[in-house]
Design a protein around this nucleic acid. Structure first.
Lengths: 225, 225
DNA sequence: CGGCATTTTGAAAAAATTCAACTCAAGTGG
DNA sequence: CCACTTGAGTTGAATTTTTTCAAAATGCCG
């Protein structure tokens, strides 16, 4: 079974047409918060493109330590296989709609060359994005990490609020901590620090407003502090 | 210019044959230690497969902080482009021979479908490998990081030495530090710690012998310590 | 042998974690 | 509608880990 938590299957076209995919309706599934799309070491038959919602990709160590590998936002593609298997767990943070592709769409240009190239590009973009994440995990301080994280989200899913930018955080502090390689306490303290220095405002626990994007950018890159 | 440090070009066949690549001699280059194969943001026209030697892939922050993204060992493929550009610097730690592929070999199956698939698989393997590295950077202690690093090298390029396994380290302590997100001092102290507990022996600064692989594995996974 | 960069070691400082308590917000059921 | 419960988030203080700064040792190369 590829879909480990049996989400609603909403397969408009059981057989994905090999041609004119932009015209044909695509196979999509919907998955509810907390439900898993796949688990580490599951055989990987499908690749998913996020249409709406947010996914969480994680890996867990034997002793329970967790690393959030990525959050999957609309436009992101998840589930790239290696040796035929997924190598992270993947679940949804909010109700999420996914466009389903077959692994063969990535691995061969036989079916739909355009789709093939699109998936390949997504994989290459993934590699590039992960390299940014490396720098963040390995070489940045807690405040630089959080500032970088907020900036990425801001650029990706920020919404204008008057003259400022608002960001919804569908993930918990623990998720952010496991993404940035920190603890929830450190995340909380760092949010407080950014709030007290008037760089951000925290409306609701899960809603951040960026008051000084320039200041945030300076922090993210380590200019002075 | 793709090859930023003008390594010896050793192009046996100037035009790479589209068919029967396994029979045709392949385009290779040789690059000397310290010389750069490419730099971040260089336009990426070529993809390289390490035939022999060791590469170092790095990214540098404005203020000089460095992250070693990966070491490229024989069998590894480097230079995957995103938006047509490289996104790390790449240089050689020892004299290194590379098989050269064109970007189009990865991006299209038109030329050589077999090569295309091989490069694609390499990209997917890359993604998988980077995810291991995430867990290491984000969630492991210094000793766990170094133990994990030595185990990976051991499996990859370890050589039997009597009943033990010997590892050559072509990189400096600073390289290892920047790979694991630590300082050279911490790397040095951690080596000493492993040496004093008889888990490893350090013949020469750049030659480690694994005396107790089981112990090393236990440390890498955080089994007590 | 001398010079230079790398590595190691030590001690102090800084950063982040751990452990513990407290606050807050969102449900639940009386 | 309100007390009660619960889980997430925040804050504080102590501890641990890692870094920083400094100095000594090592090894390599001419």
């Amino acid at each position: 079974m590829y879909v480990t938590s049996s989400p609603d299957f909403n397969d408009d076209t059981a057989v994905i047409p090999a041609r004119k995919p932009s015209i044909a309706r695509q196979a999509t599934i919907t998955i509810k918060p907390g439900k898993h799309l796949f688990l580490e070491d599951d055989p990987a038959g499908l690749i998913y493109e996020v249409a709406s919602g947010v996914l969480r990709l994680t890996r867990i160590m034997e002793d329970g330590r967790r690393q959030v590998i990525a959050f999957g936002y609309p436009g992101d593609t998840v589930g790239f296989p290696s040796n035929g298997r997924y190598h992270t767990d993947c679940d949804a943070l909010v109700p999420t709609t996914l466009i389903v592709h077959r692994r063969s769409d990535l691995e061969s240009a036989k079916g739909d060359p355009e789709l093939h190239l699109r998936l390949l590009r997504a994989a290459l973009r993934e590699i590039s994005g992960m390299q940014d994440h490396f720098m963040m995990l390995g070489r940045k301080s807690s405040i630089e990490k959080l500032a970088s994280f907020l900036l990425v989200l801001s650029a990706r899913v920020g919404e204008p609020l008057g003259e400022y930018t608002q960001i919804a955080l569908p993930m918990t502090r623990a998720d952010i901590a496991d993404f940035l390689g920190l603890t929830t306490e450190t995340i909380s303290r760092t949010f407080t620090q950014l709030r007290k220095s008037q760089i951000i405002a925290i409306d609701h626990v899960n809603t951040v407003v960026i008051l000084k994007p320039v200041g945030l950018r300076a922090i993210a890159q380590g200019d002075s502090d």
